[in-house]
């Protein structure tokens, strides 16, 4: 399909460790279309970080791609050379990291860093600086020309994150990966960043893969949502479907746990008792089974497939199968 930008096809990634293979990602399939905002939701240890570093091919040395493909504009990135990857990174795809305080080099001015990121362009320096200033202005940094001469420590956290977004968007990428870009910020800044991101995304029509565990932000920003648990996709679909008609017990529990839903003071907030399973010693069957209140005997026998329930709504749960295979 020509409007598909990024496609993950049955991707399985392991980490080789002294305890054996840690199955960090198992059979991950989803796609991101051109200009679309896709949210990845999941808690610690669900594989979000492995997913990002796999797409960028910035993985740890003990990473093993066991199966599947990551296709970007139809090309399998796992078969690309290191040179080809370097040409893609920062040009066709770029990333905004979680911690704005550690993203920038503390001993170089913001202007210097924004020049560096344009190293591919042959334009004169003055022109590059003007572009940098325009980009900062577009992200609501006042007085951008003067600000280019300043160092990272002279900016607040919210401004640093906006600078990071400006830098990531300088090359007008087709795909922006945003790894929890608002987690370190307070609510008013979070909203500002999200609104700017939405504006620029519309202007540039770049696709965004937005990773977050903040359901409020996901609900507000994303067109589609992929829910991950313990290294697997448990549900994916259009944002309204996921929030109003979740079909996987984990998604339901996660939404219930968000205190933003509960408007009056609750003495006891909902939780999901239990722990994420050990990825080096996965249990048989469904990974969520031990923490699921609706688990059936069959859930222990076989991993539920990610099956299509409706157009663009998939879930991996035996409860959605009328007849459980014997």
């Amino acid at each position: 399909m020509s409007d598909t930008l990024l496609e993950l096809d049955c991707l399985s990634v392991d980490y080789e460790t002294s305890r054996g293979d840690l199955k960090a990602l198992r059979d991950i399939s989803f796609d991101v279309k051109k200009g679309e905002i896709v949210g990845i939701v999941g808690e610690s240890g669900c594989g979000k970080s492995t997913l990002i570093s796999s797409i960028l091919r910035l993985t740890a040395p003990n990473t093993r791609f066991r199966e599947g493909e990551i296709r970007f504009k139809g090309r399998n990135l796992l078969a690309a050379s290191e040179k080809q990857m370097r040409d893609l990174r920062g040009a066709d795809m770029s990333i905004v990291f979680q911690d704005p305080m550690q993203t920038h080099n503390p001993v170089l001015t913001i202007g210097r860093q924004m020049l560096d990121i344009q190293h591919r362009s042959r334009s004169p320096k003055a022109e590059k600086l003007a572009r940098a200033a325009r980009m900062l202005g577009a992200l609501g940094i006042p007085d951008p020309e003067a600000r280019l001469k300043q160092y990272p420590h002279e900016f607040s956290g919210g401004m640093r994150q906006r600078i990071a977004i400006a830098m990531a968007l300088m090359s007008e990428p087709d795909l922006l990966i945003a790894d929890e870009p608002t987690t370190a910020l307070d609510a008013t800044l979070e909203v500002q960043i999200i609104e700017r991101l939405q504006e620029l995304q519309r202007e540039m029509n770049c696709a965004v893969l937005f990773i977050s565990h903040h359901l409020g932000v996901i609900a507000e920003l994303c067109d589609r949502v992929v829910v991950m648990y313990a290294g697997a996709v448990v549900e994916s679909g259009e944002v309204r479907e996921i929030f109003h008609n979740p079909k996987h017990p984990y998604t339901r529990r996660l939404i219930d746990c968000d205190p933003g839903h509960i408007k009056t003071r609750a003495r006891v907030l909902p939780t999901i008792p239990g722990e994420v399973p050990d990825l080096a010693a996965l249990p048989q069957g469904c990974v969520f089974r031990d923490r699921c209140t609706q688990a059936m005997p069959h859930c222990a026998a076989q991993v539920p497939p990610l099956s299509k329930l409706e157009e663009a709504h998939h879930a991996a749960c035996w409860l959605n199968h009328g007849e459980v295979p014997a």
Partner: peptide
């Protein structure tokens, strides 16, 4: 500024 966990909010 508090985002709501509801796409229709």
């Amino acid at each position: 500024a508090n985002p709501e966990p509801d796409p229709d909010a």
